[in-house]
């Protein structure tokens, strides 16, 4: 009994390490074979349509609502301390530093990441990737790398759109609905949001999330067992793993970026 459980633990450890190694090699191969994705940028543009443009609606609408909620809750809390004039600061800082990249990342993982995994998984299950290999076309260069770069380019743009929509939502609720002074709202925001410290770091975060999410999604698809359960399991794993990766990476990045501030 004990021997068995130790054996199964060992087996799982070996499997896990093997998978991590495989994922690392996959990542390196993807970077090395990225030439095609740029030489024939049309391939990447095509994928940007599926990962970026099709994620627009959910990103814009969610951003607007998150910003509106921030406006309401922020005002509610701040007026107790008589500092409702700092509403713009609160909305903008929380969006560009954290909520923009993180929520856009989570939505991107479930909207685009799952689609990527399912697509690659199905292409593998129906032997399309094998067929491509037999036609002397490297699937990593032709299929995987363009999707990777499309995700990495789309993610910061989506995060910026999320933040911008959120600030607009905060403005709608705070200024138009509640009646915070419009000048105070914008000037307080402008004076306390720093371009390098806050906005640029937010963009860096979203790029890192883009790399993490698309890599996980592509790897899960590429590694999926070629069956219906295999692909559906891989899709679920993509959403779970990449969401956790976004949150964990966010903590690490925040610790590095904003440690000097407080």
């Amino acid at each position: 009994m004990l021997k068995q459980s130790i054996e199964s633990l060992g087996n799982r450890t070996i499997q896990g390490v093997w998978r991590i190694g495989f994922a690392a090699r996959f990542f390196v191969a993807m970077l090395l074979h990225s030439g095609t994705a740029f030489r024939r940028f049309g391939l990447t543009i095509r994928e940007m349509y599926f990962t970026g443009v099709l994620s627009l609606i959910i990103i814009l609408v969610s951003g607007l609502f998150v910003g509106m909620v921030l406006g309401l809750q922020g005002y509610e809390t701040q007026q107790r301390f008589g500092s409702e004039s700092a509403l713009g600061t609160l909305v903008a800082l929380s969006l560009v530093r954290e909520l923009g990249p993180v929520l856009a990342g989570l939505l991107f993982a479930s909207r685009a990441g799952s689609a990527i995994t399912a697509e690659i998984g199905l292409m593998k299950a129906t032997e399309q990737l094998s067929a491509m290999e037999m036609m002397a076309v490297d699937p990593i260069a032709r299929v995987v790398a363009p999707r990777f770069w499309a995700g990495v380019i789309s993610m910061p743009l989506l995060a910026a759109l999320f933040s911008a929509m959120g600030i607009l939502g905060g403005y709608l609720v705070g200024v138009l609905l509640i009646g915070v002074d419009v000048g105070t709202f914008w000037s307080q925001m402008k004076s306390s949001v720093d371009f390098e410290q806050d906005i640029l770091n937010g963009v860096i975060k979203s790029v890192v999330f883009g790399v993490a999410i698309t890599t996980i999604a592509l790897f899960e698809g590429y590694d999926a067992p070629p069956t219906a359960e295999g692909v559906s399991g891989a899709t679920t794993r993509t959403v779970v793993t990449s969401s956790l990766a976004v949150l964990a990476l966010d903590f690490v990045l925040t610790a590095f970026m904003f440690r000097g501030l407080n």
Partner: peptide
Amino acid sequence: ALLFLALKVGSTSA
């Protein structure tokens, strides 16, 4: 959106 964030929301303090 990035431009909006850079110009309207943030300012370069450095």
